[in-house]
Amino acid sequence: MIEFKNVTHFYNTEQNEKIASLSEINLKIHKGDFVAIIGANGSGKSTLVKHINGLLLPSKGEVLVENLNTRDMEEVWNIRKQVGMVFQNPDNQLIATTVEDDIAFGLENIGIKAKEMGERVDWALNIVGLNGLRNSEPHLLSGGQKQRVVIAGALAMNTSYLILDEPTSMLDPKGRKNILEIVKDLNKKESITIVYITQFMSEAAQFDKIFVLDKGRIVLEDSPKKVFDKAEQLLGLSLEVPQITRLARELVKSGLDIPGNILNEDEMVKYLCLYI
């Protein structure tokens, strides 16, 4: 389990003012959870997830991963072994000259034996569907493929928690869909806990639970159905509901008896077939 206990994080501005980028965050993410985090630019999403593996430490409060405290310098490497991070721009996370070497990099660092290393790299490559490209140079791959290499690198470390910070914002629609499918599979088939930051509401709608951040605080924590039922509140937070939900709400306003929190096309088609 990942647990935030009353976490506040301050940073200093140029004028030496103390600004809280996170305020009194309390949250629990259980093993196997499939959660999204949404919030306006600057609401604290990235700051929050960087606390999970000790890249940032709380100014107040505690962050625990499997009961290990991120403040504990002796344990922080054990935490990082369990928590993989994938950031927005894969170019910043790729280092080796072949896909295979890149995935093996973390394993070499922690002294995994050659045979096991080979097995783990094979397994990770298979999951992200990059077996055919194992000897390619990472910088020649497409954005989506690069992001899959980064994910495979995290998987090879046997991470049980995978944190993805807007992993699809630089990808085209096909690449986006593909990453989301992989992330879903990792959760369902490999039981890896997923924490996924996104600016795409239609992506967030596909998770089991959404945390909504505003000015460093968690203001909503619920299922997508319930979160996207609060369209007005989301607007006030610089967010919105998915396009299909907007349509549902418009139709409800015009007197059609359908739910106002429809989240995907198939659901919409199902309801509309009752009327047309």
């Binding site: 085209d172 629609p173 096909k174 396009q243 299909i244 349509l247 088609v269 509309l272 077939c273 047309i276």
Partner: peptide, 20 residues
Amino acid sequence: GLSLPQVTYTMYKLKKIGKP
């Protein structure tokens, strides 16, 4: 590999199942 607006898909799906 380009994706379309959700409402475009919805209408497309309705059309595919024979709705006018």
